[in-house]
Design a binder for these strands. Structure first.
Length: 788
DNA sequence: CATCACCCAATTTTT
DNA sequence: TTGGGTGATG
């Protein structure tokens, strides 16, 4: 391998395949706004190159300049394939690239967002920029028929769909869902798929009964998907690998088509993704990968930073560029965050020349409500200093942590946007309506049909459905084919038969309308099926919201159609542009992060995972506690390392300020639970960080912080002997010297560390340490309670 | 066959 | 606290 950034042979070979396409070469511009390392990465034209880029080191900038440079030096734009981690990143990258090469993206076609990948496919003048999954989906849309038994109009099953398939399969195999929870089975299946293990191999490898059965589930699950002409997220990647491996002509074409590859966030690629990159690039060698091992946070999804090592072995002679200068954050943030990560690949120490800022702040609060209040007042202070809401982000480990904060935001009227969580397209009503369209247009998509066969209720109960399914199975046809056959519909009787007839008519009508505008199709599906009426009467309270969501769906569909309308004329061999297919594909592949527009006047809330690649002036990370970060389900040493990197990612999202919060108590499902500050605090004590004592609630002693701290050391949770006090129980009335009377609403812990929650008549709800608080019992439970 | 009431279990991160 | 699953009733 050569020294930093300089190709071994020094002279770029001509890597531009000759295919007679128009040459859009422009004179390469000087790039004064890049530093030396960045420039090296940008002008390295042919051959493999590895860019190790720390947070805030201008990686996206390098990528976009690099793409522009390739185009300027004669590479036809459409030959450039850039893979990003989210659709939104793809859209952003496309936008910025177009700006570099002098095209105004807004003028050209307005919005792209999650359609970016599609655009590249459709327009020769644009680079293809998309996620691996979108890229594969488009690719399969063109080629999947080469693999038995798939057809081009395959559907993509999301997590909810997958779970239902596993449910069916469990029935088929007569396994019970308590010993084989679908969730767990699916995670095994996904793990196998990511390791590219077939069901047969999984079975051969199984040593316990449980493993053997799970492998059987895997096999039946896969068979079921194939029967339904459906693929899951992992299949998108795996089938692409298979196609490239098994069909030399396809591989050949793909290699020629994608002559230059750039892959971002390489630390989070999994095995099949790596193989796709290798298959495409091993001949022309024009592969540029960028990433940061210190930001690898998706190993649980099969991603492996080992792909860096594999790349280094399998693409010998690659150039290496380190981007270590951070342009984003204050020295305080950089030095605190840097203590969390070793920095792989040796010398790479992140540094910044930015001016000093404030210290990273660690603050204890008494519980999740106090945490929420703290966040609100913090935001108020920042707003006062002129920070815009969209420059503030709340980043948490678990989606569930958003709830308390949201409640407080609502109370105090803080505008916010939660990214992720319960995804829009997973909502029941949205899935139901889409299922109507799927069932109407995809005869083999039995999952969709089953979903709506009795929704709204039309007399097709469990018994009738079973009988009908048996009849279909006997004939060896899918349920979708069966319902289109009058003879088969007659295998059930009475109300059920009538119901099936009705549904068949509805589906036929929808099928008929296949070419109508998507919003109309959606409206039809909602109306004709009786779904709207069903919502109105059986779910009156939520009906309005659900109908609004359906409208929202129609709007999204309209947008897809709109964009298709602006598309340049189709080129030969291009995947289908049928709006329904394109839309369903988009629905399946949008990521949570894609919804982050950043433009709205709102505080952003999202998981630490979803925050990857984003940046904000001010960042708050609540819940920095043991069992949360690091999460309790991850106690292997490698897992702890990943949790550490997760915190690293979180802190380095901040430009100016990072505030880490931890609560002494946190209410879980059943009641309050004492919390211990994250052990990661031990690792980040030192320069640039300030630990603040608890200041928000009466009655709580100072909290414990490990390592270097300003706390005075009193330990509110001593493990010493105690005497149980039987009187302080839920419902008992107490009188507090300062807070007056209140009733105990919850207790936890024992002895000296016993905590009680008290609803005071005049001071609201407080958490008290029973042994410290100046209080006495005035009445046992079930004496008069005060209102509410 | 549909509806309702009750009980229990679940909680990581996501394309 | 929620959602899903079960069982009794109409």
């Amino acid at each position: 391998m050569s020294e930093d950034g300089v190709p071994k042979d020094g002279v770029p070979k001509d890597g531009v395949p000759k295919d007679g396409l128009p040459d859009r070469a422009l004179p390469p511009r000087p790039r004064p706004d890049l530093n030396e390392s960045q420039k090296r990465a940008v002008i390295h034209r042919d051959g493999p190159i590895l860019v190790i880029a720390g947070p805030g080191s201008g990686k996206t900038r390098v990528m976009t300049h690099r793409i522009a440079h390739l185009i300027e030096t004669g590479v036809p734009a459409h030959q450039i394939l850039a893979i990003t981690f989210t659709n939104k990143a793809a859209g952003e990258m496309l936008r910025r690239t177009l700006l570099h090469i002098g095209i105004d993206p807004d003028l050209e076609e307005g919005r792209y967002g999650s359609h970016a990948g599609m655009w590249g496919e459709m327009d020769q003048a644009r680079p293809v920029i998309s996620t691996f999954h979108s890229f594969c989906a488009r690719f399969l849309r063109r080629e999947i028929y080469r693999l038995e038994p798939y057809a081009l109009d395959y559907t993509i099953y999301d997590t909810v769909d997958q779970r239902e398939v596993v449910g069916d399969v469990l029935g088929q195999l007569s396994l019970d869902r308590t010993s084989f929870p679908p969730r767990a089975a699916l995670s095994s299946i996904s793990r196998w798929k990511n390791k590219m293990v077939s069901p047969a191999e999984a079975a051969a490898d199984a040593h316990t009964f449980h493993d053997r059965e799970t492998a059987r589930i895997f096999g039946a699950y896969q068979a079921e998907l194939e029967a339904r002409n459906a693929v899951d997220f992992d299949d998108l990647l795996l089938l692409t690998v298979r196609l490239l491996r098994e069909c030399p002509d396809v591989l050949e074409r793909a290699r020629r088509r994608h002559g230059y590859l750039l892959i971002d966030e390489f630390q989070d690629t999994n095995r099949p993704q790596y193989l796709i990159a290798r298959l495409l690039a091993e001949e022309h060698q024009n592969l540029c990968i960028t990433g940061d091992p210190d930001q690898s946070i998706y190993s649980w999804r099969g991603a492996s930073a080992e792909n860096f090592l594999r790349f280094r072995e399998e693409f010998p002679g690659h150039a290496v560029v380190h981007l270590s200068q951070n342009y984003r954050s204050t020295p305080q943030i950089i030095s605190v965050a840097s203590r969390l990560t070793g920095g792989e690949f040796g010398e790479r120490a992140l540094f910044t020349e930015n001016p000093d800022g404030e210290n990273v702040l660690v603050r204890q609060v008494s519980d999740e409500r106090a945490e929420a209040r703290e966040i609100v007042s913090q935001i108020a202070a920042w707003r006062h200093d002129g920070t815009e809401p969209n420059e503030i982000a709340i980043l948490y480990r678990l989606n569930s942590l958003s709830r308390a904060i949201e409640e407080e935001f609502v109370r105090q009227r803080v505008p916010y946007a939660v990214i992720g969580g319960t995804a829009f397209y997973q909502r029941r009503e949205v899935k139901d309506v889409l299922a109507y369209l799927r069932a109407a247009h995809f005869v083999r998509d039995d999952l969709a049909l089953r979903r709506i066969i009795n929704t709204p209720a039309r007399g097709v109960g469990k018994v009738s459905l079973e009988r009908f399914e048996d009849a279909a199975r006997d004939r060896g046809i899918t349920l979708g084919e069966a319902i289109r056959d009058a003879e088969l519909r007659a295998t059930v009787r009475g109300k059920a038969k009538k119901g099936l007839e009705e549904l068949a008519a509805t589906l036929a009508a929808l099928e008929e309308g296949r070419t109508r505008p998507l919003p109309d199709q959606i409206a039809d599906a909602t109306e004709r099926s009786g779904y709207r009426a069903h919502l109105r009467q059986s779910e009156a309270e939520t009906a309005d919201e659900r109908l609004r969501n359906i409208e929202e769906l129609a709007t999204a569909a309209a947008e897809t159609e709109e964009i298709l309308k602006f598309a340049p004329p189709p080129t030969e061999g291009e995947p289908s542009r049928e709006p329904l297919l394109v839309f369903l594909e988009r629905v399946a592949l949008v990521a949570d992060a894609d919804f982050h527009t950043g433009r709205e006047d709102r505080v952003s809330m999202m998981t630490l995972h979803a925050a990857k690649g984003l940046e904000f002036d001010r960042v708050v990370i609540p819940g920095v506690e043991e069992t949360l970060i690091p999460h309790s389900r991850r106690d292997e040493p490698e897992d702890t390392d990943e949790e550490r990197r997760l915190l690293f990612v979180g802190i380095t999202r901040a430009r100016q300020t990072a505030v880490l919060l931890h609560a002494a108590w946190r209410r879980r499902y059943q009641g309050p639970e004492p919390r211990i500050p994250s052990s990661f605090f031990d690792e980040i004590v030192g320069d640039g960080i300030t630990f603040e004592p608890l200041a928000d609630t009466f009655g709580d002693g100072p909290g414990r912080i490990r390592g270097n701290t300003v706390y005075d050391g009193a330990d509110p949770f001593p493990a010493e002997a105690y005497e149980e006090d039987d009187e302080l129980i839920t419902g008992a009335w107490i009188e507090h010297d300062l807070l007056g009377r209140g009733v105990i609403t919850a207790t936890s812990g024992l002895g000296n560390s016993k905590r009680i929650s008290v609803q005071f008549v005049e001071h609201g709800s407080k958490q008290l340490v029973a042994s410290y608080a100046p209080l006495r019992i005035i009445a046992p439970p079930d004496d008069v309670l005060f209102g509410e």
